[in-house]
Amino acid sequence: MSTTAPARATPRRTDDGPPLVPAVSRALTLLDRLAQCREPMTLARIATDLALPKSSVHGLCNTLVCFGYLRRQDDGSYLIGPRVMSLAEAFVHGTNVAQEFNALWKDAQAAPDETMLLSVLNGAEVVYVAARNGTRPLGLAFNVGMRLPAHLAATGRAMLAYHDAEFVRRLYPGGALPRMAGKGPRTVAELLKELTLTRQRGHSIDDGNIREGVYCLGAPVFDAAGQPIAGVGVCIHRAMLGSDRGARHREAVLEAARTLSQRLGGVPPTTEAAPRSTRKAHR
């Protein structure tokens, strides 16, 4: 039996927006509770968890069953129905990671001090799909459409770290890895060790792999299926790391990646999480 805490029948208001419709709030809270539980729930249990009269819950359940958002088992208990999939598909279809990234900065009065990047994997390379170049020149401009080796770029490593080892090996069938600035892993075995460290830290580090003196930090963005679909990065001059060794920049990139994942319906894993198998997603 699930030990998830009972849901609230009416969400707590945190703003001064328009009033909520009670019946809609109760119906959505009921769906949330069933989704959290992940097992059939009886009418009595739903009523207890939501602190609502059985008669009210009975009416809510009947209505949701009629519309396909719930299904009733032979024993009278309820499960999430198939109609919710159309909502999930519509959400995924209408969400674009680059648009969401750009939306993070739409209210900014000026460009950030440091360069913020968004890339996606394309084979063994990353392709930059959005960038907010900072006010401090790096000597290296990141433009939309630019490509770099994924095993050297911070955003690339952030994504590769959450793919399984078989996926990574397929990207580099020869086993040897090219280098740009004389740094970075030379072999797939060295890369896999670095990716393990990346997962343990929760972020990736490019210390001069792409350009000497440029220090980049990366974090993965996850979709609703838990797949790493993009990487967020911040790049600075190594001399500008400061006494905190880049802690401020690290938190900035992690927060941006968390926010993007949440907007895409994804939940970032813990730093100890193992990489997901990607055979199905990349067949």
Rank of each mutant, 00 (worst) to 15 (best):
46 I>S: 05
91 F>V: 06
211 R>K: 14
100 E>M: 11
135 T>K: 13
8 R>F: 06
16 D>Q: 12
279 R>E: 12
174 G>K: 03
36 Q>S: 12
94 G>I: 02
206 D>K: 08
102 N>V: 04
76 G>N: 07
261 S>K: 05
163 H>M: 08
118 L>G: 02
92 V>A: 15
97 V>Y: 03
66 C>W: 10
68 G>P: 04
42 T>Y: 06
60 L>R: 06
223 D>C: 03
233 G>Y: 01
145 G>V: 04
13 R>I: 11
104 L>A: 07
166 E>L: 13
19 P>M: 05
89 E>M: 08
137 P>Y: 14
265 G>N: 12
67 F>P: 00
276 R>E: 02
36 Q>I: 00
166 E>D: 15
71 R>P: 02
22 P>N: 08
70 L>I: 12
121 L>I: 12
249 H>D: 12
150 A>N: 02
190 E>R: 07
206 D>M: 03
282 H>D: 13
56 S>I: 14
57 V>P: 00
222 F>I: 07
169 R>Q: 15
165 A>S: 14
198 T>L: 08
98 A>G: 13
217 L>M: 14
73 Q>K: 09
23 A>G: 13
197 L>G: 01
127 V>Q: 15
100 E>S: 14
92 V>N: 11
262 Q>K: 13
134 G>W: 06
254 L>T: 09
36 Q>R: 15
86 S>K: 06
275 P>W: 09
271 T>L: 01
119 S>M: 07
180 M>H: 09
158 A>Y: 01
21 V>K: 00
152 L>A: 02
163 H>K: 07
9 A>L: 02
225 A>T: 11
143 N>L: 04
182 G>S: 10
141 A>L: 08
39 E>C: 05
209 N>K: 01
275 P>L: 09
230 A>S: 04
100 E>P: 00
164 D>K: 05
16 D>C: 11
18 P>V: 11
